[in-house]
Design a protein around this nucleic acid. Structure first.
Lengths: 132, 132, 132, 132
DNA sequence: GTGGTCTAGACCACG
DNA sequence: GTGGTCTAGACCACA
């Protein structure tokens, strides 16, 4: 029942390790690679796999638990749970901020020299995945 | 000749003030709202407008200068310059990281309760702008 | 002679299962729903009813026995006994701590958005029950 | 502008230090001893005062920030902010749990030998404070 | 053996 | 000088 998480992190990046873990796992949770009911590796095991301290993984798990994706149980590991959808009330606010961040990220990609058409292709492919 | 920068930052956000400034200005530079030859407001003036310490703006300007967007002239402010495109050598590496960040950002948007179709629409609209 | 215990626990809560059992049973003991002489369900039966490991119930029973509420008889289950009142010697110290915890709990209720008057009503109703 | 926090914790207790700090400060925030706009001591200073590691205080502050009571700013300390009231939607659920915890706490007090009338008095006094 | 807490102290990011 | 992250490792609580 335990699932390999299949994520990788890069300690050289500016983004803190625990954030990278959270972000990577959130992708797998949203895309339902990790489904409710599945057990996650223990903090200590994932920590070994990623070559970080177990506290770092524990912090990531705690954050995911707070977001309502997983449940941490004393002595019994961590489990993916069915997440109640957040109310769309705050979205009016959030939506704007996220759109801005999207625009900023695209600008960053272009600034780094990526081809505009290539980026456009990626965006369309992401959009298509969402429309399924 | 001096251009209003028309950006706004939110000190309550987790993203540091100087990053917000850099990110917002990079959007305007990439999208060529700010064109080579135009003068930017002085560090102190922009700092006042945004209600931040002038060191914060100075750091943002320094970063933009490092990225090759602007030129700082001692005592005479900052000017947008024609940026030589970054060599696409780094791209193979960067491209992957950016794609991952894009995916993570979309996951975050979905996790925050935003409608998938709404996000898809945004992505397509960004793609379209890039293809022009 | 055996009494249904009529408690329920929630494994999703942060409070450990065994604590929930102890706390719930202590309420029933203090309020004398469970009276000296009555037999409690066996560790294994209560464990099944609550869907927890029997060790968890065993730990709860052990704690209640230590507090002087029940008596464990090897192989013959557990019985509610007449508890000698704890000497009020410790009270001076405990009283302060408990008052503080009461205050903290009320603060938590208010922080969670509960109506102040509603909380006050509850407190008065508890007080009234104590004065009978 | 900086305010003494005037809390004390007891490392001998089972409740973790950071929880004690959170609980004690929440009382002071709910009762508006600490008002929006006030600066809190830095994590390192409060840590010294309470004789704990600064990480312990940092964790407590982070929790209070998450609950919306305070704001942590890089390089600028922590400030009490005006907290948006939590929506009373979840209360139906919470209310029950909190009432149960109240009942359990009272049972614990009685079990520890505190005089029932004394407890009743305390409850009434808390109720009165809420009705003001 | 699980997750949780705490300490000690290094190093970084921010303003 | 502020808060944030991470490591190392001890010890505890839980199931």
């Amino acid at each position: 029942m335990e699932e390999p998480v299949n994520i990788s992190i890069d300690l050289k990046l500016a983004t803190p390790a625990y954030r990278q873990i959270v972000d990577a796992m959130r992708v797998r949770l949203v895309e339902e690679d990790l489904k409710p009911g599945q057990m996650l590796p223990t903090v200590r095991r994932l920590a070994m796999e990623l070559s970080v301290h177990f506290n770092t993984v524990a912090q990531a798990y705690r954050e995911l638990a707070e977001e309502g994706w997983i449940e941490l149980k004393h002595g019994r590991g961590a489990m993916v749970i069915a997440r109640r959808a957040p109310r769309p009330a705050e979205n009016a606010e959030n939506s704007k901020i996220f759109s801005e961040r999207l625009r900023e990220l695209v600008a960053q990609m272009r600034a780094s020299g990526m081809d505009a058409l290539h980026i456009a292709m990626e965006l369309r492919s992401l959009a298509q995945a969402l429309e399924r």
